[in-house]
């Protein structure tokens, strides 16, 4: 049966269930044996509940996989030590954004161990000495068809990084990188809630309330609708496709 007929049938079944409850009350006491119609309804309810929970509770976690970052990097420690963000995340002169720093940025200070933190030891032995780039898992990596200009948003839009990335600057640990098994998209991009409803991406770390003057509880979801909505809100214009696509 094609899905359309199934839909009619289920609609019919729903009726039956709803109809059945109100009817049962006021119509004349039904002759024995007429309770038989309860069998399909019970079967229906059983099927409904089982698959409903299957869809909302059991399957979603399987859809997403989790990976740990190669190194448990602490932003807080580095911001305190280095003092600013531009050391690692800066604008190149052609306006492009450097994004995640390369190994040579880390190697500038971490040529030899500066503390006894095992993570730093791991950094030096596994990456700096062999000169292998750190395979960071980027939470906000957009799909290949998306062009995102940090210059436009940070320089022109004067937006604060936390708006999209959440208060990652104050984090002491890196949260696990969750991604969709099928599409390999980070969960930050396509929405934490399986229904795509935007949800607080940062809540998983159960971050204590920090004192920064930007009161941002969570990272905004970075899906197409959010960008479009923000553009409509901020620039009041319906953007052409090529503004964000390439």
């Amino acid at each position: 049966m094609s899905t359309t007929e199934e839909k009619e049938q289920t609609v019919a079944e729903n009726e039956q269930e709803k109809g059945g409850d109100e009817q049962a009350a006021e119509v004349a006491p039904v002759k024995p044996g007429t309770w038989r119609f309860l069998i399909p309804i019970a079967a229906f309810a059983l099927g409904f509940m089982s698959h409903f929970s299957l869809g909302w509770v059991i399957l979603p976690p399987i859809l997403y996989a989790e990976k740990q970052q190669p190194i448990d990097f602490s932003h807080k420690l580095h911001v305190d030590e280095v003092g600013d963000c531009e050391g690692c995340h800066y604008f190149r002169e052609d306006g492009s954004f450097s994004g995640i720093p390369e190994l040579e940025n880390c190697a500038e200070c971490h040529e030899e161990a500066m503390g006894e933190d095992p993570e730093e030891a791991k950094l030096i032995t596994e990456y700096i000495e062999p000169g292998k780039e750190i395979p960071w898992l980027i939470y906000a990596r957009q799909p290949q068809c998306v062009f995102f200009s940090h210059a436009a948003h940070v320089k022109m839009g004067e937006m604060d990084c936390a708006i999209c990335h959440g208060p990652i600057g104050d984090s002491d640990h890196v949260r696990p990188y969750q991604y969709n098994r099928l599409t390999k998209y980070s969960r930050d991009i396509w929405g934490w809630n399986i229904a795509g409803l935007s949800k607080n991406g940062w809540a998983y770390l159960k971050q204590a309330d920090n004192s920064g003057e930007i009161k941002i509880e969570h990272a905004a979801r970075m899906k197409m609708d959010d960008c479009a909505e923000c553009h409509m809100e901020k620039r009041g214009v319906h953007e052409a496709c090529f503004v964000c696509h390439k």
Binding site: V11, A12, E15, G19, V30, F37
Partner: peptide
């Protein structure tokens, strides 16, 4: 369409019940 289907389903159900 949905209204027509619901209408027929309810009427058929009522016939069956009473």
């Amino acid at each position: 369409l949905i209204i027509i289907l619901h209408y027929c389903a309810i009427r058929a159900f009522l016939d069956m019940i009473c």
